[in-house]
Simulated assay, not measured.
Amino acid sequence: MISKLNLENILFLDIETVPETAQFSDLDETKQQLWETKSQYQRKDDYTAEEFYERAGIWAEFGKIVCISVGYFNITNDVRAFRVTSFFGDEVKILKDFKNLLISHFSKAKHLLCAHNGKEFDFPYIARRMVIHNIELPYKLNLFGKKPWEVPHLDTLELWKFGDYKNYTSLKLLTNVLGVPSPKDDIDGSEVYQVYYEEQDVDRIVQYCEKDTIAVAQILLRLRGDELLHDNEIIHI
């Protein structure tokens, strides 16, 4: 049961992604053709492949990670602290630093990774980008040969579904209905491309990513029936 989980054994996370290049024209001809084929069903006849390229960050084959934010609980004598930090900048360095964190602090069988829609997006995206950059997968992301109950991943979207596979609930909606402070008070995912490539404001993206990570932790607390985190319990490292 979720209430039996030790919060200190969970690493909460969120990622922000953008297209691998600023413009569609920056891709070589082969990659442009591959993008046109890959995106044809999503864009249909409403957009050209070039017009649709701002959304390429959704796919690991055409995007890259610009920030991974993580958070974890430290509980001493019933006093909670939720520590949040971020990896950002060069993607290879982001991935290697994140991998080092997993290996050094979250590598035991009891440790779990938790994200919202993480099983469909965050976890496989990170793993795919590691493979693309020839980075050996850490145990927590290497699912080959694992049985479903052996996968060390928690997903707040999956927990909220309660077995209903037809339902998708965004992080913004779920925080709203559960009375969790909204993380979407500045930008949302659709604006990360503009903030990264046009405004070149990585700090703003990091702040947004950290808010999402905190929101994931808050949702898990609500699902457990625990008290939400107060501002003074959240420590940015």
Results as ranks from 00 to 15, higher is better:
F87D: 02
E150Q: 11
E54D: 08
L112M: 11
G118Y: 04
L141I: 12
L154K: 01
G89N: 08
L101I: 13
G57Y: 05
L137S: 04
F82W: 02
R129Y: 03
M130D: 00
V151D: 05
L137R: 02
T76C: 11
Y53V: 12
M130R: 02
S86E: 04
E136L: 12
F106P: 03
L141M: 08
H111G: 02
G63M: 10
L113Y: 06
A81P: 06
G57M: 04
F121I: 11
C114T: 11
D122Q: 09
Y125K: 06
E120P: 05
N134M: 01
I68F: 03
I135R: 02
C114N: 08
F87P: 04
P152W: 03
E54G: 09
V92W: 00
C67P: 07
E91Q: 08
K108N: 11
D90S: 06
Y72T: 14
M130T: 03
N77C: 09
T85Y: 04
F106T: 06
L95Q: 00
P152N: 03
F52Q: 03
R80H: 09
I132K: 02
A56L: 11
H153T: 13
K93S: 08
I65A: 00
K96F: 03
G118V: 12
F62C: 07
E54P: 10
V131P: 02
V66T: 11
L102V: 11
F88T: 11
D90E: 13
C114A: 08
V92A: 00
F88I: 03
A81C: 12
S86Y: 03
E120M: 10
V79I: 14
V66Q: 03
P152H: 02
V92K: 00
P148T: 05
F121Q: 04
P152Q: 01
S69M: 08
E51I: 15
P138A: 02
Y53K: 07
L102H: 09
P152I: 07
D78Q: 15
K108A: 07
Y72F: 14
R55N: 12
A115D: 10
W149R: 02
I135P: 01
R80V: 12
F62Y: 12
N134K: 08
P148V: 07
P124L: 01
S69G: 13
T76V: 14
I94G: 00
I68W: 02
S86I: 08
V92Y: 00
R128E: 13
E51S: 12
P138M: 05
S107R: 15
Y125D: 04
F144G: 14
T76E: 13
H111I: 12
L113F: 06
R129P: 01
K146Q: 15
D97N: 14
K147F: 13
V151I: 15
N142T: 09
